[in-house]
């Protein structure tokens, strides 16, 4: 072995001026090619399977709204006086407390509330609308918060007690007593209730996947939960059924693990309409699929880290 090595060194010494630099060139060019391939290759899209699934901030922006258009709109809301600094601070402090307690990505909840009401906690107070306040709650959202919490996680009730010092339920849209902690027009109550309702959607979706033994990425499940918050869990599950039926189980797993595939799927209006046609007639399915696609795009562009937002996605989004 030693002799072989000596012979090789001798050979290098004899032909060293040519062979050794050539080898270095080959090795380096190989390395550079590999690096270029990794950087620009087809798998450079943000497909991710991080080992630590307890981290929910992988996909979400640390500061929000992440989209410049929404940032401008927020400034306009403040300049017009539609959102006071006091209300904004109260929303932010309640939001951080709730998201920390329930392990919700703060950017997602903020963007969901922004999308639902443009942070107007009195939205619909003088109207007969079925959906009211900061998180656009309906009578059935209230029913779930007030009477069905035993079905969900006990942390929900602990959050209410931790925030208000007692259980302030039943919560309702109390027009005449908007400052009462039991009124949904009160900012901390609205934020906490909306966070719980979103958390329940997440719990519902994750339980289904756990029972089926399907691995998922929590960040993507939060996006699906925001879709379910707005259009019902049935819309999400019908989409899941359709993807699984048409594209198979492997593709479905990709849908709950890969952001790029999630983005493509939720912006495929044909697929969304086809899925929702299993629930509603064609006209309603079309209109619902359009609304769902816009809602998902807006939430994503507002809440996701700029790293995961292509220029095209940003340009497509209209607040």
């Amino acid at each position: 072995m030693k002799t072989d090595l000596k012979n090789l060194i001798t050979a290098f010494k004899e032909r060293g001026s040519f062979l050794f630099p050539s080898l270095i060139v080959i090795v380096f060019s190989g390395l550079i090619s590999a690096l270029i391939w990794l950087a620009l290759g087809p798998n450079s899209s943000p497909a991710f399977y991080p080992p630590d699934k307890t981290k929910t901030s992988f996909l979400y922006a640390a500061t929000y709204p992440a989209n410049e258009k929404f940032q401008k709109e927020l400034v306009q809301l403040k300049n017009r006086g539609s959102l006071s600094e006091k209300d904004e601070l109260e929303i932010q402090s309640s939001l951080l407390a709730s998201t920390d307690f329930l392990d919700i990505p703060p950017a997602l909840l903020w963007c969901l509330l922004f999308q639902e009401s443009r942070l107007n906690h009195l939205e619909g107070i003088d109207s007969e609308n079925s959906a009211l306040g900061l998180g656009q709650f309906s009578q059935f959202s209230f029913f779930e918060i007030n009477h069905q919490q035993s079905r969900y996680r006990p942390t929900n009730i602990n959050l209410i007690i931790s925030m208000f010092g007692r259980d302030v339920r039943p919560i309702a849209a109390k027009r005449k007593d908007i400052l009462s902690p039991s009124s949904y027009y009160s900012i901390p109550t609205a934020v906490v209730s909306s966070a719980i309702y979103l958390n329940n959607r997440y719990h519902q979706l994750t339980q289904i996947l756990i029972k089926r033994g399907i691995e998922y990425h929590p960040d993507l499940l939060w996006l699906f939960s925001a879709m379910a918050y707005n259009k019902g869990t049935r819309s999400v599950l019908t989409l899941w059924n359709n993807v699984q039926k048409q594209n198979g189980s492997e593709r479905f797993k990709l849908l709950v693990n890969n952001y790029e595939y999630f983005r493509k799927t939720t912006s495929d209006s044909l697929l969304l309409t086809q899925s929702l046609k299993r629930i509603w007639d064609e006209t309603k399915a079309r209109s619902y699929s359009r609304e769902l696609a816009i809602h998902t795009r807006n939430i994503s562009s507002c809440a996701l880290s700029p790293l995961y937002q292509t220029t095209r996605t940003l340009a497509e989004v209209a607040p």
């Binding site: 079925s130 959906a131 656009q136 309906s138 009578q139 059935f140 959202s141 029913f143 779930e144 009477h147 069905q148 918050y229 707005n230 259009k231 019902g232 869990t233 049935r234 629930i279 509603w280 309603k284 209109s287 619902y288």
Partner: peptide
């Protein structure tokens, strides 16, 4: 029944918008 009604509305149309239920 009230509980069932709430579950179904929250499942299909939580905002109780114009589409109603299926």
């Amino acid at each position: 029944f009230d509980e069932m009604k709430s579950n179904i509305w929250n499942y299909e149309n939580p905002k109780m918008d114009r589409s109603g239920l299926s």
